[in-house]
């Protein structure tokens, strides 16, 4: 079954810039997908439309049966609870510890205290940060901060993990670590992962489903693709 089904999506920003032209694609459940493309290729717009930060101008986006394109502002939170999102700049709260940052995602949705504790510790363990549970984000390296962000994204057992250039601020070794963590999550928890990146090495190493965008158009959609093959 297709978990993500994008049908004839166009996106025109208010300033008149067209970011996406007639995009249609399908992503299977449990898939690990790289979205690649240069600056201005529309990959960020596509990612933003998946978590409903942006709305398509026309077309439909189905996410596990839910039409994300038609979702009202006041209902967006229902979608977000089923997703995990990871950004290039981590977006952690600097005044909270690692534990509190991860637990935050469960607290705001009103989970029970012991449930929060169990899930939070499990997620922190999964990303390999058990020893830094009580540290503050400023005391961590970039790679560690990104792992905290991943732990926060997966603590709620989302069916989909969206990553917008998660390795953009990291050196190659740390980047590999992060992708390894994501791969583990994909395999162990069966979480579908959509990751926007322009890191050639990672894409080539992983041999995963690759979607290439150029100037807002879908140029390649490979089951086991590499970066080199693409006309990026």
């Amino acid at each position: 079954m297709d978990f993500i089904d994008i049908k004839h999506v166009n996106k025109v920003y208010k300033n008149g810039v067209t970011a996406i032209y007639d995009l249609s694609l399908k992503i299977k459940k449990g898939d690990f997908v790289f979205v690649i493309g240069g600056s201005g290729s529309g990959k960020s717009t596509l990612i933003k439309m998946l978590y409903r930060e942006e709305r398509p101008t026309s077309g439909e986006i189905f996410l596990g049966g839910l039409n994300v394109a038609k979702l009202r502002n006041s209902k967006v939170y229902k979608l977000r609870r089923k997703l995990g999102i990871v950004f290039q700049d981590y977006r952690l709260l600097p005044k909270l510890t690692v534990y509190e940052n991860v637990a935050f995602a469960l607290e705001v949705i009103g989970a029970k205290k012991d449930e929060i504790k169990a899930k939070t510790l499990k997620a922190i363990d999964l990303v390999g940060l058990k020893a830094k549970t009580r540290n503050y984000p400023t005391e961590l390296s970039g790679g560690e901060q990104q792992r905290v962000a991943i732990a926060r994204a997966i603590v709620n057992n989302p069916r989909l993990l969206i990553c917008d250039e998660p390795t953009g601020n990291l050196d190659p070794d740390m980047s590999k670590d992060i992708v390894k963590v994501l791969d583990t999550i994909n395999k162990e928890m069966g979480t579908t992962i959509v990751m926007a990146t322009h890191d050639r090495e990672i894409v080539n190493d992983m041999k995963k489903h690759v979607i290439a965008l150029k100037d807002g158009r879908l140029v390649k959609d490979f089951e086991k693709g590499t970066y080199d093959n693409e006309v990026v």
């Binding site: 609870r81 999102i85 935050f104 949705i109």
Partner: peptide, 17 residues
């Protein structure tokens, strides 16, 4: 602002924010 945007991101409803 950042705190609020993160709350939205992790799925807090507008009311609970």
């Amino acid at each position: 602002k950042r705190e609020i945007s993160i709350m939205r991101l992790v799925g807090a409803s507008n009311l609970s924010i």
